[in-house]
Computed example of a mutant assay.
Amino acid sequence: MQIQKGIAEAESLLEDLGYDTLPVRPFDVARSIHSDDFKLSMELQSFDSDKILGRAEGNIKGALVYINSNIPDPGRLNFTAAHELGHVCMHIMPMVKSSFECGTKELSNQFNDPIEQEANGFASGLLIPQPLTSKLTDGDINWSNIDIVSRACEASLEATYRKMAYSNKSPSALIIHQNGHFVRFVPMNNFAYFIEQSPLTREQQASLTDVRSENYPTYFDEVDAIDWVNPSSKYGRLSTIYCSSILLNDGFSYTLLAYDDDCLVGVEEEY
């Protein structure tokens, strides 16, 4: 799998470079990679189009990387920089491809391009390296653990959730809303149920934990599966589902969904 290949490449690079503390900052890593044999420059640059988040170009002798300085979220900027470093290390240096121009599409794990998936995996492994983050939590996927790792790594909550989910292997999903309206659905580890891309109900909004003033929760509520997903799939019918929702700045709300065998009825085969 391309994402896992990228993760392994990044974590191996950090070990080779002797990184043993968090956070890992992509611009520092770029300076560590730079040498007489391979000259690497990474700079912030204001792009004419906000659709372009990062560019990387080079050859066997060196590379230039430009990151859009207008990216407002520090976690997103770090992920973009790490993604472009992935292109340098996995694609430019071995001469797979010489230039990249990446936007939101390329940085999405749903974008079905093996090269971009490798770069996304590299970014995840670089910013949230499992050998260093494994000491911080028990590994369970809950908002408290995600917040702890996110802060330590200076990574976004979404990127942190993805990386932790790669290691956890249990089916889970993240749903993002803004002001109650659907934004994005991020299923992980063969999460087998689809959601309706609908606004949050009053009951769902009332269940949000406002983490601007409260602690990030460790708990999940057990709710009717149909409240969040189409409960039917070839793997069986979900009766209930585990749900944990938080409210963030700018009207954003993030919901974790998970299920296990206790939530299923009519299982036809193992998932």
Rank of each mutant, 00 (worst) to 15 (best):
M1N: 14
Q4H: 13
Q4G: 10
Q4E: 13
G6C: 03
E9G: 04
S12G: 06
L14C: 02
E15V: 06
Y19I: 09
V24N: 01
P26Q: 06
F27R: 08
D28H: 01
D37C: 11
D37L: 13
K39M: 13
K39D: 10
K39N: 11
L40G: 00
F47E: 07
D50I: 09
I52C: 09
R55K: 15
R55L: 15
A56L: 06
A56G: 06
A56S: 11
V65L: 12
I67K: 03
N70A: 12
N70S: 13
P72H: 00
P74C: 00
R76N: 07
F79A: 03
A81W: 05
L85H: 04
L85S: 04
M90A: 12
I92Q: 07
M93P: 13
M95P: 10
T104A: 13
K105N: 05
K105M: 13
S108F: 03
N109C: 12
F111P: 02
F111T: 03
F111W: 06
E116S: 04
E116G: 04
F122V: 01
F122L: 04
S124Y: 12
T133G: 09
G139Q: 08
D140S: 13
W143E: 04
I146W: 09
V149K: 11
V149I: 15
C153I: 09
A155R: 01
A155F: 01
E158F: 09
E158R: 09
T160M: 09
T160Q: 07
Y161F: 15
A165F: 06
N168Y: 12
S170Q: 11
P171W: 03
A173F: 12
L174N: 06
I175T: 12
F185K: 04
F185N: 03
M188T: 10
A192K: 10
Y193D: 05
F194T: 10
E196N: 12
S198C: 05
R202T: 15
R202I: 15
R202A: 15
Q204D: 05
L208Q: 02
T209I: 13
N215W: 06
P217C: 05
P217L: 09
T218Q: 15
S232T: 14
S233Q: 05
Y235D: 10
Y235F: 14
Y235N: 12
G236V: 02
R237D: 09
I241D: 04
C243N: 15
L248V: 04
D250Y: 15
F252C: 01
A258R: 15
D260R: 00
D261K: 01
C263N: 05
C263P: 01
G266C: 08
V267N: 11
E269C: 00
E270T: 09
